[in-house]
């Protein structure tokens, strides 16, 4: 009780420190709740910033099938994004993504 009384007295006497304390508590609680209740989930669909290597590993797409779709040797597109590949081959990005999505393995039976 002594501590609470001391804190209440200090809050009144040091308004700037009190604002800092209460503000920091508020920010900590708000961010803590957001971290707790917003789990990090994977994006549902393939996106333009991803590379062929990325989608092979993240979505379990067959490397050779993807290389055949893109018309290249497996592993020859290191460091290039799907958006860049679409631009270079003259295919609409959305269309290429749909074709890559079709290569994703289905759910296990």
């Amino acid at each position: 009780m002594d501590r609470i009384a001391s804190l209440a007295r200090a809050l009144r006497r040091h308004p700037r420190l009190a604002v800092l304390f209460l503000g920091a508590v508020g920010v900590a609680v708000m961010l803590g709740l957001r971290v707790t209740f917003a789990p990090a989930v994977a994006p549902a669909a393939v996106q333009g910033w991803m590379t062929p290597g990325y989608v092979v590993r993240a979505y379990g797409i067959d490397r050779d099938a993807l290389a055949a779709l893109l018309g290249v040797e497996p592993g020859s597109l290191r460091g290039r994004t799907i958006a860049e590949i679409a631009g270079a081959t003259g295919r609409p990005e959305a269309e290429l993504i749909v074709a890559i999505e079709a290569l994703r393995p289905g759910p296990p039976e």
């Binding site: 001391s6 209440a8 200090a10």
Partner: peptide, 23 residues
């Protein structure tokens, strides 16, 4: 957000301790 929460908690702890001492 986790790093922000940890930093805000540290600031709250230091400010709270300073307030208690002042009290």
């Amino acid at each position: 957000q986790a790093a922000g929460a940890a930093s805000a908690a540290l600031i709250a702890f230091l400010a709270g301790r300073a307030l208690l001492r002042a009290g």
